Amino acid sequence: MDNYSPAGLPDTVTPLGGEVYEIDTRLAGYDGITAGYLIRSDRPCLVETGTSTSAPVVRDSLHALGIGPGDLATIVVTHIHLDHAGGVGDLAAMFPSAEIVVHQKGARHLADPSRLMRSARTVWGDRMELLFGEMLPTEAARIRAVDETGEVDLGGGRSLSSHYSPGHAKHHVGLIDSHTGDLYVGDAVGVYLPATGEVRPATPPPDFDLDASLASLRLFHALAPQRLLFAHYGPVDAVPDTLDRSAEELRVWVDLVREARGQRAGDLDHAVAMVREKVDERYRPLPDTGDDVTIDTLAGVEGNVTGIMHWLDRLEQERGQDRTPPA
């Protein structure tokens, strides 16, 4: 690794102690929406890449931290959504010695992102290019898939352990650092808002599952982390309180969507309007920065309600099938 000066770091980089550095990946050029993290260990590891358009920002931040093209040992993503993993192909090319680690249910989409990109274009339409850019494929030989658990060697007896944590996505893992006790939570705990200190749900379609989400939060409790590192956004020391609040918010949102669905089945607009009115009372308003892109773009009411509705529809269908007598 090259020499670097902590005093001369760019404003995209924040030291967090324990040789861990937060990198603001500058989604669509905006601050404070998506974060990646460098563990500057004997075998340097990047957790989360941000989007494809973020890749130059991440590369320059790593270089400022003394990580040259041949130095990065591992790139790990908590899941394959484009705000977390869209830059994998770009950064794999920029750092050709890095192994890419992902849950097995997401591995094929890193090797061939065409299906993932088609799905994202359907959701995001004209905003796709601004927000995410184009995810490039990664050589399959460089991808290591993990299952229920896995381990990344950080060197010097330090490791990063992965733990399968679905609920937000079927291909989601949490990652805990054996040296610092930091738990990289991806989106499994939701979205943390430093400006207000609140945590809000992230329940997008098609994979949201309340039971799986709550089980993942219980798993995170059991891992007894010292700190939570959110991709949206930043470090949180109040671990048990934050995990408990995340579970509470999930239940509140699901109950509200159930209520709205009971009033007008299948009426998404009604559910969104009702939930928005109710949750506006729960949260402090965010500062008005004048930005066109905010965290509400990625984890807003409409997307969350759509994910919960999709899950409730799926539950109803499964229960209907269970009641169907055999032919």
Rank of each mutant, 00 (worst) to 15 (best):
L217V: 14
D177I: 04
A93D: 10
V101E: 04
D31L: 12
D112L: 01
Q317Y: 08
N304M: 03
P194W: 04
E48Y: 04
G190V: 06
E19S: 15
H63F: 08
D237V: 12
P10A: 06
Y233L: 09
H81C: 02
S54T: 11
A195N: 02
V254F: 13
D71F: 01
E19G: 06
A93M: 06
D313F: 01
H171A: 14
L228Y: 11
V272N: 08
V146W: 12
D112H: 04
V275L: 07
V146E: 08
Y164S: 14
Y283I: 06
R144Y: 03
D153W: 02
K278G: 00
G8S: 15
D267C: 02
A202S: 14
D83C: 09
V173D: 10
K278S: 13
T203C: 15
T74E: 03
M309H: 01
A98L: 04
E318K: 13
D182L: 05
L110G: 04
T242Y: 02
Y233M: 12
T138G: 04
L130F: 05
R251I: 04
E281L: 15
A7V: 10
Q226H: 14
P325A: 07
E139K: 09
P44M: 11
Y30S: 08
I23W: 09
E302K: 14
D209L: 00
G300V: 13
E22P: 03
W311Q: 10
S52E: 10
P194F: 07
G125L: 11
L193A: 01
D83F: 07
D153H: 02
S97H: 13
A265G: 08
P201D: 05
A93H: 11
D211G: 13
A195M: 10
S61A: 15
E148D: 15
